[in-house]
Nucleic acid binder design. Sequence first.
DNA 1: ACCTGAACACCGTTCAAGT
DNA 2: ACCTGAACACCGTTCAAGT
Lengths: 271, 271
Amino acid sequence: MATRTRRSQRRTEALSRERIVEAAIELLDAAGEGGLTFRALSERLATGPGAIYWHVENKGELLDAVTDAVVADAVAGGVSGVASGATGAGGAGGEASGAAEAAEAAGAVGAVGVGGLPGAARDGIQAVALGLFDAIEEHPWLATQLATQLSRSPWGTVAPRLFESIGRQVRALGVPEDSWFTATSALMHYILGAAGQNAANSASSRALPPDVDRDQFLDTVSTAWEELDPDEYPFTRSLAPQLRGHDDREQFLAGITLILAGITVVHPPAG
Amino acid sequence: MATRTRRSQRRTEALSRERIVEAAIELLDAAGEGGLTFRALSERLATGPGAIYWHVENKGELLDAVTDAVVADAVAGGVSGVASGATGAGGAGGEASGAAEAAEAAGAVGAVGVGGLPGAARDGIQAVALGLFDAIEEHPWLATQLATQLSRSPWGTVAPRLFESIGRQVRALGVPEDSWFTATSALMHYILGAAGQNAANSASSRALPPDVDRDQFLDTVSTAWEELDPDEYPFTRSLAPQLRGHDDREQFLAGITLILAGITVVHPPAG
DNA sequence: ACCTGAACACCGTTCAAGT
DNA sequence: ACCTGAACACCGTTCAAGT
């Protein structure tokens, strides 16, 4: 994980907004939200704290830029002809992500057939959803950051990006036009909520054999649920066993299937 | 809004975890996340910064306690026989909230009939959902805080609280047992995502005539969407008009209706 | 047991000064 | 135009000292 890290920036390269965003992502990935500091950032960029302020308004704007860059990379492939890497900041974290690659994964998971839905559109929605899911898995800080930015400024760049890439697939489903907004919103909100919550599971199992630690984690949560007050939490307790060995990704897609089914029932295709 | 604020705490009352949480909520409501400071908190409580550390581990734990208290109040009425106010911290922000009162509001909004669903269970889900929706509207900082805590520690107290109150209603719908987890998760994730995002709209219109500013806000966002790049955002641009004059609450409930419909289609009642 | 308040380490941000 | 780095105001947290 540290093998490819640029030890110290070449002093010859000029400072730029892009390089700052890239370095910020590296810091966030390595040490979480607390790891992003103007001092740590300037040290990594071999400059002074003040220099960063020439390229970036303040820390809030930097976090917005960072979030936007990662989201843009995550939904790339669905939003326009320009493939992943368009922002120049996505390569910082690790393996390539993006909706295009996620589409294959979506096909591999045996999704429940829903009836009259165009299969391509359904795969497209899963691809976008998994693109975001994977991005949060790779950058756990993204979950909180997404919530912060979306609730602070829904008119920002991130919301339209998500709305556009999800909405196109909704349109492709044949949903009647006056239901586009409702259907797209519902999907977007579910995806954000679910991806955000599931981030913790993978955040706790970093740089470890993926399955071993995951099972251990679920076991801990499951046990905690079993120890809840029987009077106050009978339902949650009864579901604790089901938690053990459940698959986040599968669960996530099951939710999407649910919503897609609801869309086709409440807003049947016009054609 | 400032009329009922306790000017300075009576020195006679002993410091307690509950009073600290209550004061923290007041600070968050008044000045947002940046307003909660151990110095501001100790000033309001007429004590020193160090005193707080005797009752609370650190700032993170304080935020967890604050979040838990507000959520407990929001879902009160659905989770057990104990009515709202059980935590002693809910009365800090303003008017009473809670799922019980929200149930009436749910009935007032003309929800789309979905078919074979037991009406009471459907109302119950709407009540829980609106209880959380209102809590975030009243405490905008809750959206980010919820995301932070849930993604950091899903084994905490907040997740079971939400899961329990939503899950009971799912069970009441007649959903077969082996689908409880999927259905409850989907609803919970949607509610968290949607309520969080919609918080911004109301956050920008505080202490102002509710409708005037809301319309103005939607107008701003709508205009911003219309000015997006036509090549990159054709879908989002086409929906900009639909944004003007749309009702957050109605939209929120429409999403719930969608998911409930999906649940009954994919997981039909066993009976 | 509970509280005080000075002190420490650290942070975001500014800005006169440099090139 | 772009960068430097000391300085400022502020923050979370600690801890010896009090009652």
